[in-house]
Amino acid sequence: MNADFSISQHPLHVTPLREALSSPDCGGFVHFEGRVRNHHAGRAVTALRYEAYRELAEKEGALIVTEISRKHGVKAAAVHAVGDLRPGDLAVWVGAAAAHREAAFAACRELIDAIKDRVPVWKHETYADGKSSWIAGCDHAGSAGNPDHQ
């Protein structure tokens, strides 16, 4: 397992990751927690499962952390959960620590976007009506951006 990025069985343990990013020369620490939402496209979500292609996901995730750490001069780490989750559970955690806050904010944002875009992980939702489905990206957002897709 890579120290900077891992795919981990739910529940995630983030305390060691936070501590690893703690350093006297870093005055800014930003982290993002992606949590399971209880609704999707108007349907009530009752349970959710993530699966990952672990070998490739950990390689690509480590590459992303390395790229963005270098670009912004930050220390960064991330972990994505797999397994059965419920609304409110922590699905993904991303953290970036830097001397100043600007770099930490920017790196954290880029990390989560790159992880969603490039790491082979798939989400399977179960709804209140008993139906379930795999989730894929949606292509119908306007160029102005879309709150539905944040």
Partner: peptide, 25 residues
């Protein structure tokens, strides 16, 4: 276990994985 373009040649014993669009996060 590496991303491969569609024209990546195949050889005996390869492990090939097909991935739909990702939906992590």
């Amino acid at each position: 276990d590496e991303f491969a373009p569609p024209d990546h040649p195949l050889k005996a014993g390869d492990k090939v994985v097909f991935m739909p669009p990702f939906s992590g996060g």
